[in-house]
Write a protein that binds this DNA or RNA. Sequence first.
DNA 1: TATAAAAAACCGTCCAGTCTGTTTTTAACA
DNA 2: TGTTAAAAACAGACTGGACGGTTTTTTATA
Lengths: 200, 200
Amino acid sequence: MKWQQQKSLATREKVLRAALVCLERDGFHHLSLVRVASEAEVSKGALTHHFSSKDELITLAMEVLLDEFVQTLRASVDDVHAGRVSLDECLDGIWHFMSGQLYMVTLEIALKARHEAAFKSALTPLVQHFHAQLNDIWIRLFPDLTPERAQVLMNLTMNLLRGMGTQSVFREDPSYFNELLDTWKNILDQQLPRGKDHKY
Amino acid sequence: MKWQQQKSLATREKVLRAALVCLERDGFHHLSLVRVASEAEVSKGALTHHFSSKDELITLAMEVLLDEFVQTLRASVDDVHAGRVSLDECLDGIWHFMSGQLYMVTLEIALKARHEAAFKSALTPLVQHFHAQLNDIWIRLFPDLTPERAQVLMNLTMNLLRGMGTQSVFREDPSYFNELLDTWKNILDQQLPRGKDHKY
DNA sequence: TATAAAAAACCGTCCAGTCTGTTTTTAACA
DNA sequence: TGTTAAAAACAGACTGGACGGTTTTTTATA
């Protein structure tokens, strides 16, 4: 690869990463192009050279974030499948992710999309692809359930964690969330088939 | 009551209501004082006369919203208690609320609070009071459960609905959400004691 | 030298908060 | 009761700053 091309790619990468940091730390309506540029240690000119608008930048950053989440999750589910980690630990991992950067950025983005049609249509295919990937993962997580049942149970789980993530803004009380999570683990366990050879 | 006082109260009420409408329709970072004033059919001068800052306005509007939700919910739970409506219908009512104005405005506010310490501390007592009221309501909803169990189950429920509310931004598919909600109703039902005289 | 990348100056817009002026209501008092 | 002064409610112009996007200039590579 040519040197110029390398440098260009590196700059893009730095800017995207910085955008995620700023989104998570400052929130969308405190995010400005100069801030992102400064976080990326790049001039505003360089930023606008690579990204034609703020919306485009954010959309691409979002894509990076969702991809990383899917990869992490896939690895975790593989571990469950191979018996390396328990289902409970896998859920803990998802909760960790959902109470951290991913979910907050997602929220910022979702609210923006809610009020800006153009942005929303740019983002919708991305989100749909994300959910399709998730659905595949859920099926692999619960091979003993029907695909539909696995998806419903895990969509419940994800939405529960989403809600908990939201509440965690105002309620910084790990024991409260742990209790909820433990209760949910129990309930989820009750929903799994006990035997080996039947589909629930 | 003196006429001036009446007029003053009416203006405040109009502005607060308009603020909620704008928050829900336009989102926080498209909300400006002139927009709220125009929505309320009041001059910007009148608005600033009654509310010393944008943050104060939003905080007070939030208070109105939460109070109304608590009242509605309390009435609904009374209906369940009196056998006028089923638990399922009560949940439907909460879901209706959560997929509407209340929750979206709450989200906007929560994200703002997440990044602005002063705003957050102004809002925290309000939110805590709100949750305390909710906890009382949950106990009354499930008199056959221990208070702790009732609260855990309903906090799970609320967080599930929160998450579903969030997802509804991108996924406008009522049947999907209905399936989730039905599944949850079943699960919740399984968690309730069958007998009459024991605490679970 | 030609071209891509990066930097920085610049412009138009928007908005919260301030300030000044005007109208309406209330209170005091002769 | 009629008059007037004070206070409250309201209206709108203005300001200072932030920001997104554009354009121009400089630098580095091929």
